[in-house]
Design a binder for these strands. Sequence first.
DNA 1: CGTCCACCCTGACCTAAGGTCAAGGTCAAG
DNA 2: CTTGACCTTGACCTTAGGTCAGGGTGGACG
Lengths: 258, 258
Amino acid sequence: MAGGLTIGQAAAFAGVTIKTVRHYHRLGLVAEPERDTSGYRRYRSTDLLRLVQVRTLAGAGVPLAEIGDLLDTDPETFAGALDDVRRRLTERIEDLTARRDTLHRLAHGDRALLPDRACAVLERLADLGFSPDYVAGQREGLVLARALIPEIFDGFLTQLEHRLADPGFVALTKRGWDARSWDPDDPRIEELASALADKLLADRALLAVPTGFRNRADAASRYGVVNHHREDQGPSIARLNTLVEAKLRAAGIDFPHR
Amino acid sequence: MAGGLTIGQAAAFAGVTIKTVRHYHRLGLVAEPERDTSGYRRYRSTDLLRLVQVRTLAGAGVPLAEIGDLLDTDPETFAGALDDVRRRLTERIEDLTARRDTLHRLAHGDRALLPDRACAVLERLADLGFSPDYVAGQREGLVLARALIPEIFDGFLTQLEHRLADPGFVALTKRGWDARSWDPDDPRIEELASALADKLLADRALLAVPTGFRNRADAASRYGVVNHHREDQGPSIARLNTLVEAKLRAAGIDFPHR
DNA sequence: CGTCCACCCTGACCTAAGGTCAAGGTCAAG
DNA sequence: CTTGACCTTGACCTTAGGTCAGGGTGGACG
């Protein structure tokens, strides 16, 4: 047995695993120490110090690729670099904190994804007796609308608020939701579509789509995604939507075509 | 062109890269959407929602492997899991903060690595006119001693404090430091070793090594590492150490043998 | 003296969460 | 009819190590 610690002792000293020490050797961060007669690495004090330095920086999140240069420059550059590392660490901490808070809001409601005004609309839906499933669908629609077509999101909300204030419209909408279970060829669907279109056309101004939006290249596909959200829930709903859309278009309303 | 967003649009919507979306598909986190006639993926609203959910959790540091199960369980389990994620995030933040503080202390002195008493000894060395190189070597020695042989670290400090209070010893130590530049066969080394050994033997009690320590299996190698630290700085220093050691042993002092 | 166990050696492959490169198909515009 | 921006797949690269395989060493026990 020659002088110096074995790799296991050195690793324990620095608080890392043997594998990590060998990894540092391969990267050239810590020079390979002398070997004893049986080929074992034998660590002297300078090796241990270097190991602890590397390990401290690595623990603070400095990429291993940078640590070598860092430790081999003059002390004042090193001090500056340390400050830099500290700043990056602070940034990372703030970032994580923000994510954690987002997660917190996510666990306690929609406030993370939607503005207060939209949340109010959703609560109003629930109060009006719409089923949780319907409210969930509307929530998804709002999230999508906000992200995909922000230019008309406010107008969209205004439409919704307006309609919810009209008991006749609320009744028609509920009936539309019930239509899920109807046969797609049920004549009541045609009838309902007419009633809905009439109601909508009573407030033509609310239906206008801003010109700035209509001209965007992918406007149609984005609008389509929002508009046909959850249509897969049933063919009757899809038919109802198609009929209303056709009636509005026939009345001269020009909205994105898919 | 059929309905739905292309992968590029979907990725932009979720704030990730195209590659990331495909990665999620391969892991089964987000189901593959329908393809259009040319084989392009077409994303509908439900795909987009799923994508945002995955991306939110992944952004919070949840391993991708867990996200699938997480999103496919009932809402209350999900809420519990979210809380768990939040807790882990908090832990991680605290950990990083602690590391950052360590780094801060590291940039501003030795207080991170050594107790106040040791720092005082180092300052005293500097005040007594020892060269910065010598002080640096002693600092390293103390760091090693504290980590490798904590059982005798306090005794070690006491010895140092005692010696520094003796001007004769200080003078001999400085001379020993000068010996670096001497030839290893210089007769002055022999002479200096005798003087040092005499001084040391005048306070035999200080030299005793606790029995509890001597009996530890790897005591010798640890002690050796500390004792021969920086000996590679010059063969004359090594010779001086060896001579002093031999003289002390000859006088009946029994310290760990390497 | 043999055997056991803990430790050491090297080298090849695996992980997460994608990134990069290559080679080719598709689409709208000029 | 070509250009450029998009899409497709597949194979390999990255960070910071971990795991496995196959084999050598050193000290303790019987």
